[in-house]
């Protein structure tokens, strides 16, 4: 992994202007519903998220990267429809496509590559992440790790604004999660060349339920 480390940090940086900061990864409605109220609850939330929706996103980012590396952009449409089927909440499908569109816009500007023009107007975020990783010379495992990092770092950053919690406790949970993210990125990369229909899907029913409640609110701090 000596090659490309700086590119991976660029892609996974929350300060990349791709709009990720506006999302709490489902933490806002979860805190509001009283399902997370302390540091232990937050850590369980983050672990559950990494193991389910985070892992699925990582698998699809790895698969998209693998296809982009071998210039098989036509194969990405099957990933799009399989990821739709693995995202039961229409709100979360829409959030993923919004984040995908924003990441695509940033990447086409800061690091142009012919693949970006072939992705359509609103591709899923993991698909864009995979293609962007390939464009930066990174591999499937890097794409998976970048998206896993975001799946926990996003809600962790939002936690300070949503609940009374010591930021050191939040980052202690992130520190404990690092081995898990590495392991999940390895597992996701192992699926990278599998047919789209056979890619794993790990559901998170409460995340779907929370997202559909959240979108009906008139006033909210985060977009999701």
């Amino acid at each position: 992994m000596a090659q490309g480390q700086a590119a991976l940090l660029l892609l996974a940086d929350g300060r990349l202007p791709a709009g990720g900061y506006a999302h709490s990864g489902g933490l806002e409605p979860t805190v509001q519903a009283g399902r997370v109220s302390d540091a232990a609850g937050l850590e369980q939330f983050l672990v559950g998220r990494a193991e389910t929706t985070g892992f699925v996103a990582a698998v699809f980012a790895a698969a998209a990267c693998e296809r982009a590396v071998r210039d098989d952009i036509a194969a990405l449409s099957a990933l799009e429809s399989e990821l739709d089927a693995r995202t039961p909440s229409p709100e979360l499908r829409s959030v993923s496509r919004t984040l995908g569109r924003q990441l695509l816009r940033v990447m086409s500007t800061i690091h142009p590559h012919p693949h970006f023009a072939l992705l359509g107007t609103a591709p899923h975020q993991p698909v864009v992440m995979g293609v962007a990783a390939a464009a930066l010379g990174l591999g499937p495992r890097d794409a998976a790790l970048a998206i896993l990092h975001e799946s926990v770092a996003g809600p962790a950053a939002a936690a300070a604004k949503l609940m009374r919690i010591d930021p050191f406790d939040v980052h202690a949970a992130l520190a404990r999660a690092t081995e898990r993210l590495d392991r999940l990125a390895d597992a996701a990369a192992n699926h990278a060349d599998a047919p789209a229909s056979e890619l794993p899907s790990r559901g998170a029913p409460l995340s779907d339920i929370a997202a559909e409640h959240h979108r009906s609110w008139n006033v909210r701090l985060f977009a999701s």
């Binding site: 369980q44 939330f45 039961p88």
Partner: peptide
């Protein structure tokens, strides 16, 4: 997994138990 006219419509797996992590968290089933 449910497909309609060969297009995927729904594909979800739920993993619980001692070998699965985080499923008791508020993101999964609480």
């Amino acid at each position: 997994r449910v497909t309609h006219d060969d297009t995927p419509l729904y594909h979800q797996q739920l993993c619980v138990g001692p070998q699965a992590d985080g499923w008791r968290g508020a993101a999964v089933v609480g």
